[in-house]
């Protein structure tokens, strides 16, 4: 069984610096620029989020969490968008597949997935700017697990401040 002590304590809003808040918010807002530039090549968005994550992961856990959270949330929409591009190209350029109900249903699913991604990313950006946490379904828990879980004894020892002897 896991306990709360297995995780680093979460910083409260007043403990998060302005710089950290802005870096965390940037992880979500940067995605919008990447989405705009990347269409219709969804892979560009993914590359952009990986780059942003690599730059920011060594900063505070708060920034690390939000960068990873945003990157993870980017993956399913990127895959869905790539799937749509692939499917569409097969239909309209190679004529090997045809427009059917599965394709139409898939388009709607991709539209809804992207809308949800945009809406929740904006909420997450606003929350992170306020120094708060916001958890997407699945990806929030996963990011918290990766970033805040204490990995070994050494890390635990390192994290504990002691008064002078």
């Amino acid at each position: 069984m896991e306990e709360e002590s297995d995780y680093h304590p979460l910083p409260q809003p007043d403990e998060v610096t302005i710089r950290e808040r802005e870096d965390a918010m940037g992880a979500y807002l940067m995605m919008f620029a990447a989405v705009a530039a990347g269409l219709p090549l969804p892979i560009i968005n993914l590359i952009a989020s990986i780059v942003y994550y690599s730059i920011n992961k060594s900063k505070s856990r708060f920034v690390h969490f939000h960068a990873l959270h945003s990157l993870f949330a980017q993956i399913p929409t990127s895959i869905l968008n790539a799937g749509l591009v692939f499917w569409t190209v097969r239909i309209f350029f190679f004529h090997s597949w045809e427009v059917n109900d599965y394709y139409i249903g898939y388009i709607w699913m991709v539209v809804i997935a992207n809308l949800l991604y945009f809406i929740f990313s904006i909420i997450a950006a606003v929350k992170s700017r306020k120094g708060q946490f916001y958890y997407f379904l699945f990806f929030g828990r996963l990011s918290y697990q990766i970033v805040y879980r204490i990995k070994d004894e050494a890390e635990m020892k390192e994290a504990v401040n002691k008064p002078p002897a």
Binding site: D101, Y102, I104, G105, Y106, W108, M109, I112, A113
Partner: peptide
């Protein structure tokens, strides 16, 4: 979501 739009295509 996918299933619903396949069954009730718009």
């Amino acid at each position: 979501i996918w299933g619903v739009f396949v069954i009730f295509p718009i």
